[in-house]
Design a protein around this nucleic acid. Structure first.
Lengths: 249, 249
DNA sequence: CGCGTGGTTGACACGGATCAATCGTGGTGG
DNA sequence: CCACCACGATTGATCCGTGTCAACCACGCG
């Protein structure tokens, strides 16, 4: 009975076999994944990108950056999980949990004289990479084919944040959860529609802008209505169309 | 007594002296204003940008684009005011009111195969310009110095939307209004701190994610506390520091 | 003058946050 | 091996903020 449905998801630790000082280059596949919509990336491009990124390794609890840090570089998370949010002195109001590889802050550095928009704190051991804005800008002058990738990354964040503000303004907790579940469904239509939550539920709640208690209640309500079946961290979606209908209430 | 404090702000109409069919080029100063952080823009750059923008004139009530329109071009608003929001069939949930010159959608077109994120409807006569993504992309290959401008535009939107989601999630209506007022204050410290609202209050409320009634109540509460003085569309800020303190509650 | 628009005010209901208690799970040390 | 404890989720009780509905006021215009 003890499948990992009940275990709270552990933050992925760095494997001990990878010495922190090694700092291997990111490589083609990783860049391709981070800068989507850039199919024409030569190996020279990849090497140039690798050349200007500097890597850092941080321990649990360290700040990757804060909203007071001047943003001089794009920051991306290679390995580990980082909590993004706003810290008011001691306490930290989490907003989302990112796990590498992903962009931590691809925007702030493009604006001169501004700081990062959020605070980012490492949970567990974390490997991050930074691309100084000045160096990246001169690189884009030499290799303009790389620009659409960075533009697409920012554009996708704009789309995502725009959707999020809309949902926060106009949708209630029930619809937001339904939309979240529907978004995280595997897109294959014939699939069993089984969903494994790989964050703590309180992190999902923070991401949705609600308290953990309400998330629990809304989960129960959805399962009472026969739309989903919940057992621990395993969610079976029974009526995907119904979820979508709820999401656009 | 009848200063224009009581008159609801009219959407700026196109002056009748400008024939709609004229379609003059945007010109250097306008591009410089739209693509900030691009000080080194040659006249050839400006001409190239002008060459690939196509202009349209729309009447009141027309849709500039909807969330079903595939986004093949960056859209910017040259003249007039446009209501941005989500339309559910007949009704339209407004989210913000833009007045030209400003970017209407600088993000969606960079993602291939996606539609616009919002619906945009013209209020009054409106002049918009579109930059097809394909043409713009080849232009950026030839003139990579233009890329930072577009990156900065997107980055600023990311910053703004990130702040907005944070405020919607964690701040109450009172703090949001205080933050809005503090943001819209003229930055000169010795100024009389007089603020003229140039949108209808219901549009400000929609932008802040609250109902017009609550906006009215919060305005009254702030004035009861002696922080501001409201008469119609004129707001006199008496205690700027107090506003800022409230905004970061 | 009546009408439409936009704002204000009050009464009321409801969604969701908060607080507190309980439960299940897993890890740890005696 | 088992008691203990920390952590996370769940559930219930309660309260507050804010949306909604309604009435009313102020202003401008035909």
């Amino acid at each position: 009975m003890n499948d990992l449905a009940m275990a709270p998801p552990m933050p992925a630790r760095l494997p001990a076999s990878t010495p922190a000082a090694a700092m291997p280059a990111l490589g083609r596949s990783l860049w391709h994944r981070l800068l989507d919509a850039t199919p024409l990336m030569t190996t020279a491009d990849v090497q140039a990108l690798d050349a200007l990124t500097v890597q850092r390794v941080l321990a649990a609890g360290d700040w990757v950056f804060t909203h007071r840090t001047p943003a001089r570089a794009l920051v991306l998370l290679l390995e580990g999980t980082v909590l993004l949010g706003h810290s008011d002195g001691a306490a930290m109001a989490p907003e989302r949990l990112l796990r590498g590889p992903a962009w931590l802050d691809a925007a702030s550095a493009w604006l001169t004289g501004t700081a990062h928009a959020l605070d980012a704190r490492a949970t567990g051991m974390v490997r991050v990479a930074e691309m100084p804005r000045a160096a990246l800008q001169t690189l884009l002058m030499q290799r303009p084919a790389l620009a659409p990738g960075f533009l697409a990354v920012l554009a996708e964040q704009v789309q995502h944040l725009s959707l999020q503000t809309h949902e926060l303004m106009h949708k209630d907790a029930n619809s937001r959860l339904a939309a979240w579940l529907h978004r995280h469904l595997p897109s294959s239509p014939g699939a069993p529609a089984l969903l494994h939550l790989n964050e703590r539920k309180r992190d999902i709640a923070a991401q949705l802008g609600m308290s953990p208690e309400t998330l629990s209640r809304q989960m129960r309500q959805l399962s009472r209505c026969g739309l989903i079946e919940v057992r621990g961290y395993q969610v079976r979606v029974l009526d995907s169309a119904g979820l979508q209908r709820l999401a656009t209430s």
